[in-house]
Design a protein around this nucleic acid. Structure first.
Length: 376
DNA sequence: CTCGTCC
DNA sequence: TCCTCTGACTCAAGACGAG
DNA sequence: TGAGTCAGAGGAC
């Protein structure tokens, strides 16, 4: 809701805070991604892909391809899963459910916001085989992403949702996809605050006035006026004292304090108790899981993995313009990754996750504070 | 690069 | 008058590889 | 779903 409006305000009033960089610029950087959003996109934007068992596997294919693409570019991704939505979001969710239920069956509308459990487990299994860490957020994923960035464990949040900014993510990148020539748009929160002459608290107030997901907005108070009045008076309370309440009625059940608290003191996973660790993808495990268990096209999986391996063995540079001649793309050698039997298929049930490659987000050790160097 | 396919 | 906000509308949203 | 238009109405100057 406030997403578009905030993007407009930033582009108009703080254009300096927005820059574009080629993806290669983010080599060796740790980037947090909202897993639920990504998966939801794969499931909606993609034509439904059903395997032979009638299961929709769009999310697996999408996650597989996109994650490998990030890894090939030297990026260290960490996926953050949504937890329980805050109570303040319930009205919004209810509205969405109602809208969906109006034209679809009730079962689908009940999908609410949280991913179905088996779906999420599949994604976790896939990430484990890819050697990519994931984090379970207690509440909003964007909030935990922001906390990870603030802690220095993560360089930036990659999302299309502007929420990460009021949550305090110092850097936000958009348009992170597998498109060729991908230019990533990076938004700097400190630059925004400086250009707008606002504190983070005032910025949160601005976001609330623009119409965030958690509470209604004030009638006839749009982006221009909201920004001007806030810069002039400092807080929403002060703004309210300087506008005509008749012409600008407040929304019903307007929980200003609650919404502020939600952004400024959100419920997040403690970054100090999270250890992020990346391993090489496990090609054998990926073929077993994706092709044999989930029935993705085996040659596609293998082909993609082979491409990844070739990129790995190549010298670190070699990206700039060096287009590999047609010839360079070797054809498949299917037997490559699973010399051992196809017969050893894992149990059908999601069962215990692959034990050997267990992903580690241990809680306990602050771990090496391998903070991504802020230099550059 | 555009377009058709992925299961 | 011009500026600003609202609301109703439409469309496309992923990633790949063959040609 | 959300993001990009385009119509039009209420305020501001």
């Amino acid at each position: 809701m406030g997403i578009a409006r905030l993007a407009d305000v930033i582009k108009e009033e703080a254009a300096e805070a927005v820059n574009s960089f080629p993806l290669r610029q983010y080599r060796d950087r740790v980037i947090a991604l909202d897993a639920s959003i990504a998966i939801y996109q794969f499931r909606t934007a993609m034509p439904k892909l059903f395997n032979r068992n009638g299961e929709n596997i769009s999310h697996l294919q999408g996650l597989f391809y996109r994650t490998l693409h990030l890894l090939e570019n030297g990026i260290k991704p960490v996926f953050v899963f949504d937890g329980r939505p805050p109570d303040l979001k319930q009205p919004l969710l209810a509205r969405r459910a109602e809208a969906a239920g109006a034209r679809r069956d009730a079962a689908e509308s009940r999908r609410a916001e949280n991913l179905p459990r088996p779906l999420k487990q599949d994604c976790e299994t896939l990430l484990s085989y890819l050697g990519v860490p994931y984090v379970q957020a207690p509440a909003e994923a964007e909030a935990t992403c922001a906390a990870l960035v603030k802690s220095g464990k993560v360089w930036c949040t990659a999302t299309e949702d502007m929420d990460a900014l009021p949550f305090g993510s110092l850097r936000l990148i958009r348009h992170l996809s597998s498109k060729k020539n991908c230019e990533v748009e990076e938004i700097s929160l400190p630059d925004i605050l400086q250009k707008l002459g606002m504190t983070q608290e005032q910025f949160v107030d601005l976001y609330i006035l623009l119409g965030c997901d958690y509470c209604g907005k004030i009638w006839r108070l749009g982006p221009k006026k909201a920004l001007k009045l806030l810069q002039q008076h400092g807080t929403i309370e002060q703004v309210l004292q300087n506008i005509d309440p008749q012409k600008h009625p407040l929304p019903a059940n307007w929980d200003l304090e609650g919404t502020r608290r939600l952004f400024l003191q959100p419920e997040v996973a403690d970054p100090g108790r999270i250890t992020l660790e990346w391993r090489d993808p496990d090609p054998e495990g990926l073929v077993r899981f994706l092709a044999h268990e989930k029935h993705m096209n085996e040659s596609r999986v293998c082909q993609r993995l082979q491409r990844w391996q070739e990129a790995q063995s190549k010298p670190r540079e070699a990206q700039p313009k060096q287009r590999v001649p047609r010839e360079g793309r070797r054809q498949r050698k299917l037997g490559e990754f699973f010399p051992a039997s196809k017969r050893a298929r894992p149990p059908e049930v999601p069962g215990p996750r692959p034990s050997r490659k267990r992903q580690k987000l241990q809680v306990g050790t602050p771990g090496e504070a391998g903070s991504p160097d802020p230099g550059k």
